[in-house]
Design a binder for these strands. Structure first.
Length: 246
DNA sequence: AAGAATGTCAACCGCGTAAGA
DNA sequence: CTCTTACGCGGTTGACATTCT
């Protein structure tokens, strides 16, 4: 037995939103908010859409403070840093980035950052390992969950980042290593982003750190970070001191 | 120029959980 | 305390765009 659908699929429109629907949703939400009930809202707004669909459309696309595409190198580094600390907690990561949605961050990671890291991993490996290595997310660890209370405070860092922001003196080991399916297929790429495809493994902080260094030292972030290459230590997103692994 | 391959991203699905009855 | 409902989230899919051969 499957889960009861949240709405009658035969009675609601699905697929891409028209500009008319967008306008109806936008004007309704701007006038009334969601009314505290997304399920009832489509009817009130005159939309033949599922409430979940309306909520998603608003949060991911129509909200006035959303920025789409064009991730900066600094934003990339923030995502990288937070991913290594939190794992695939996209909403948490997105909440630390002005104007970005969890969906945007997740898509950006799956389509660009992960591949860039895999490429860096392949380039830095002396001989091709059976699996490419990436810094592991810490989401499934007690370590990561200990970060959550501090992240519950909504804070948005607005100043510009440099790669140096993510290079810190030894903070302990924010990483564990991971094995990732390296078949490179698109579907597997999506699957590989799932936390279930990361396994805590043997590799240690040093190698994982190197990948982030490679990343920071790449052309996107310029030469400044390359000067840091000899520095030991971990990386962190300096949003809030309490974020740093303890 | 055309078809194939690959990349991007909006949207959907379904699970976990909080809140209220 | 239990059940129901709705929300929020992460994972996944599929349509469309772009690049490659």
């Amino acid at each position: 037995m499957g889960r009861t659908p949240c709405c009658d699929r035969a009675a609601v429109k699905r697929g891409p939103w028209s500009t008319e629907e967008d306008e109806a949703l936008r004007s309704y939400v701007q006038r009334h908010g969601s009314g505290g009930n997304w399920i009832a809202m489509p009817k009130k707004a005159g939309l033949k859409r599922c409430g979940k669909s309306c909520r998603l459309r608003w949060l991911n696309y129509l909200r006035p403070d959303i920025r789409h595409g064009g991730f900066t190198a600094e934003e990339d580094a923030v995502i990288m840093s937070l991913y290594t600390q939190l794992g695939s907690k996209w909403s948490l990561i997105a909440s630390q980035m002005e104007g970005r949605t969890d969906n945007d961050v997740k898509n950006h990671w799956n389509t660009k950052l992960k591949k860039r890291l895999l490429a860096a991993a392949a380039a830095s490996a002396p001989s091709p390992p059976p699996h490419a290595r990436l810094p592991a997310p810490a989401a499934s660890t007690a370590h990561a969950s200990s970060l959550f209370p501090s992240l519950a405070i909504p804070t948005v860092k607005t100043e510009e980042y440099t790669c140096d922001d993510f290079l810190a003196p030894a903070l302990g080991d924010p990483f564990a290593a991971a094995d990732v399916a390296a078949d490179g297929s698109t579907s597997a790429a999506s699957a590989a982003s799932s936390a279930s495809n990361w396994s805590t493994a043997d590799n240690g902080a040093g190698e994982a750190s190197l990948f982030l260094l490679d990343f920071c030292a790449g052309p996107d972030l310029g030469a400044a970070a390359a000067d840091q290459l000899q520095l030991p230590g971990g990386y962190y997103y300096p949003l809030d001191p309490s974020l740093s692994p303890v």
